[in-house]
Computed example of a mutant assay.
Amino acid sequence: MDGTRTAGRPLRADAERSVRAILEAAERVLTEDATASMEQIAEAAGVARTTVHRRFASRQALIDALADSAVRQLVQAIDDGRPDTTPPLVALHRITANVLRIKGSWGFALAQTHAPESPAAQAQQDITNRCMDLLARMRDKGLLDPAADLDWVRRVYYALIGEAVQDGAAGAEPDALATRVVDTLLYGLGARGGDRPAAR
């Protein structure tokens, strides 16, 4: 795992569980207090302080590993939606629900910035590219206006997800929120059916 002293070597199952417990605790603790110490994170994870220091060379290394782990989960969430083979509208809904679950659980980690050449930054760029590919498939299937600016559509989609995450924090279900996001993206908020009002 990037940022750990065990980087480059596979972790034993018990060590893997320990690292996951530390990362989950770090997300909880740092969400409450972004200045929290390694000792506070260790206490929340139920492990010795030395265990955290053995797995992570520094507090920043822990935060970097937390961010990398969250981005990898986002990549997996997209993979699980099968954007290249599933009908695009189905894929969009599945991916949206999956992403909302991850963002709802790993908000602090996903808010971190990454060095341009870091694995996390490259993964984020890959996510953007795959989103653009899916939107292009939707346009080709007639689900988006042929003249739609896909980068604008992507930015609106991301903004809608950001708003849906707030509702998710209040207890709304990811599947229902995904339907709201997709419906708003494709149909907007105007009245459906009939003639579209003329622009003034």
Rank of each mutant, 00 (worst) to 15 (best):
Y157K: 11
V165E: 06
D183W: 04
V156I: 14
Q166D: 13
A159M: 05
A159S: 14
E163S: 13
A178T: 10
A159Y: 01
L185H: 07
V181K: 09
I161Q: 15
R180P: 03
R154M: 12
A172V: 02
V156E: 09
A169S: 00
A170C: 06
R180L: 12
I161D: 00
V156P: 01
A169V: 01
R180Q: 09
D183V: 05
R155C: 00
Y158L: 10
E173H: 14
R155H: 10
A172I: 00
G162Q: 08
V182I: 11
L160V: 04
A172L: 06
V181Q: 00
D175R: 12
L160Y: 10
T184F: 07
L185V: 02
D183M: 08
T179R: 13
R155N: 12
P174E: 09
Y157R: 14
A172Y: 04
T179P: 00
V165K: 00
P174V: 12
D183N: 14
Y157W: 15
D175E: 13
R155Y: 07
R155D: 09
T184E: 11
Y158G: 05
E163I: 06
L177Q: 00
D175V: 13
L160M: 14
E173A: 15
G162M: 06
A172T: 01
Y157V: 06
D183R: 15
Y157H: 15
G168V: 01
V181R: 03
L185P: 08
D175N: 14
D175G: 05
Y157T: 04
A164K: 01
D183T: 15
V181A: 07
A159C: 06
A164Q: 02
V165Q: 08
T179H: 10
A172S: 05
V182Y: 05
I161A: 02
V165M: 01
V165H: 02
A159H: 09
V156F: 13
A178D: 09
E163F: 11
E173Q: 13
L177V: 04
D175W: 04
Q166N: 08
I161P: 01
R154K: 14
E173C: 02
G162A: 08
D167A: 10
E173W: 02
D167F: 07
R155V: 06
D167P: 01
R154I: 00
A178I: 04
A169G: 03
L185R: 06
A170S: 10
E163N: 08
T184S: 15
G168M: 07
A164F: 05
A164R: 01
L160H: 11
Y158Q: 11
T184I: 07
T184Q: 14
G171Q: 11
I161C: 10
G171C: 05
A170D: 13
R154F: 11
A159K: 03
A170G: 02
D183K: 11
T179G: 11
E173D: 15
Q166I: 08
A176Y: 03
A164M: 04
G171H: 09
D175Q: 13
L185T: 05
V156Q: 12
R154W: 08
T179S: 13
R155P: 00
A169C: 00
Q166K: 10
A176G: 12
Q166Y: 01
T179C: 06
T179M: 05
D183Q: 13
Y157A: 11
Y157I: 08
L177I: 03
A172K: 05
D167M: 08
A176E: 13
R180F: 02
R154A: 12
D183E: 13
E173Y: 03
